[in-house]
Simulated scan of single mutants.
Amino acid sequence: MERIDKIIASQGLYSRSDVKYLVKHKRVAVDGEAVTSSSRKADPEASVITIDGKPLIFKKQVYLMLHKPQGYVSATEDKTQPTVLALVPQAYKGRELFPAGRLDKDTTGLMILTDDGVLAHNILSPRKHVQKVYRVELDIPVTKEMQEGFAAGVALNDGVCKAAKLVILGEKTAEVTLQEGRYHQIKRMFGCFGAKVVSLHRLAMGNLYLPVDLPEGECRELTAEELNRLQMHES
Rank of each mutant, 00 (worst) to 15 (best):
M1P: 15
R3G: 04
R3P: 02
I4F: 01
D5I: 06
I8F: 01
S10I: 04
Q11M: 07
G12E: 00
S17L: 09
D18Y: 01
V19N: 02
V19P: 02
L22D: 08
K24L: 15
K24R: 15
R27T: 10
A29C: 06
G32K: 07
A34Q: 12
A34D: 11
V35C: 09
V35K: 00
V35P: 00
V35E: 02
K41R: 15
K41I: 14
A42W: 00
D43C: 07
D43N: 14
P44R: 08
A46Q: 14
I49W: 03
I49E: 07
T50I: 07
K54F: 09
L56Q: 00
I57M: 08
K60A: 00
V62E: 05
Y63C: 02
P69K: 09
V73G: 15
S74M: 01
A75R: 07
E77S: 14
E77D: 14
K79E: 15
K79L: 15
T80H: 15
Q81C: 09
Q81K: 14
T83V: 14
V84D: 02
V84N: 08
V84P: 08
A86R: 15
A86D: 13
K93H: 14
E96V: 11
F98Q: 01
P99D: 05
P99F: 01
A100F: 02
R102S: 10
L103Y: 13
L103K: 11
L103F: 13
D104C: 08
D106C: 11
D106K: 01
M111Y: 02
L113T: 06
L113V: 04
T114R: 07
G117V: 01
A120V: 03
N122C: 11
N122S: 13
L124Y: 14
L124P: 08
P126M: 11
P126F: 11
R127H: 13
Q131G: 12
K132V: 08
Y134K: 13
Y134S: 10
E137T: 12
E137V: 10
L138A: 00
T143A: 04
E145Y: 08
A151I: 01
A152Y: 11
A155R: 14
L156Y: 04
D158H: 02
G159I: 10
G159P: 05
V160G: 12
V160Y: 14
K162R: 13
A163L: 12
K165C: 01
L166C: 03
L166G: 05
I168A: 06
L169Q: 10
K172D: 10
A174S: 03
A174R: 05
V176M: 06
V176F: 01
G181E: 01
Y183G: 00
H184L: 08
Q185C: 09
Q185M: 05
K187Y: 05
F190I: 02
V197Y: 09
H201Y: 15
R202V: 02
R202K: 08
R202F: 01
L203S: 13
L203K: 13
L203H: 12
A204R: 13
M205E: 13
N207F: 06
N207E: 04
P215E: 06
E218M: 12
R220I: 14
L222W: 05
L227A: 05
L227Q: 02
N228K: 04
L230V: 09
L230F: 11
Q231Y: 04
Q231G: 01
M232A: 13
E234H: 12
